[in-house]
Design a protein around this nucleic acid. Sequence first.
DNA 1: TAAAGGTAGAAATATAATTACTAAAGGAGG
DNA 2: CCTCCTTTAGTAATTATATTTCTACCTTTA
Lengths: 103, 103
Amino acid sequence: MKLKIKEYREELQLTQKELAEKINNSQRNISNWESGASEPDCETIIKLAEIFDISIDQLFGREPQYSVREPAMGIDYNILKEVRNLTDTQKFALMQFLREIHY
Amino acid sequence: MKLKIKEYREELQLTQKELAEKINNSQRNISNWESGASEPDCETIIKLAEIFDISIDQLFGREPQYSVREPAMGIDYNILKEVRNLTDTQKFALMQFLREIHY
DNA sequence: TAAAGGTAGAAATATAATTACTAAAGGAGG
DNA sequence: CCTCCTTTAGTAATTATATTTCTACCTTTA
C-alpha cells in the first residue's frame, strides 16, 4: 500500500526533510513511505492527514468524503487560501508585513 | 493507536475468529489489534473499513466526515515559504492581517 | 460438572520499519 | 564547464514490531 504522501507534500511545497521535521521523523522514512518501501504507523498517519488537512481516506487515495459541517481547517491551509485570493498589490503589502514580522 | 475494530466487529456480531477468516488473518492478530498490542498494515486497514462499511477515518475513531479541501494550486512560492517559517504566534498575527487586508 | 466457544497472556520467531552512511541527480551561481 | 548545494533514494546493519504458537482463563450451556 502506497499512501498519497508525495502528492500532498509537493502540493504544500515541502521537502521530505521539512515534512519529516514537522512530524518528528526522518527524511529517510518519508522517502520510504512515499515509495511504498514501508508504511507509517497509525499515529503518524493521523499526523500526516492533519498537516495536509485531509481525511485519512484521502491519504489512502480513496474518494474524499464531502463535509456537511464546517471543515476543521489547519492554520497553514487557511493562510494559504487567503493568500491565493489576494491581488498583486495586496501581496506586496503582505510581503512587507512578513518582513516586519521577522525583524 | 487503537483502531475501533472491536466496536465495529461486535456491531456486526462477528467473533474474532470469524472476522479473521474474512480477511485471511489469524484470530490472535485481531485480538492484538483490538487491544492495541499491534497495528494492522494499511492494506488490512482498508479491508476492515470495507467489511465494516465505514470510512477509514471512522475506523481511526475520527468524525465520520472530516475535512475536505481543494488542492492548493497557484500559491506564490516565496510567500508560501515565508509563511511556513513563522511561529504560531506570528501566524495568528498574519491571519489577523489577512482579514483586514480585504476590508 | 463437563464441554465448547471466545478471548488474551507469554515467549519465540518472523518480518518489517528505521537508521546511518552515502551517492546520484538536478539546479544555482561563479 | 566546474563546483557547491539541495533533494532524494540505494544498500546494508540494526532495531522495533507484528505475528505465531501454545495454552489458560472465562463464560455459556447442556
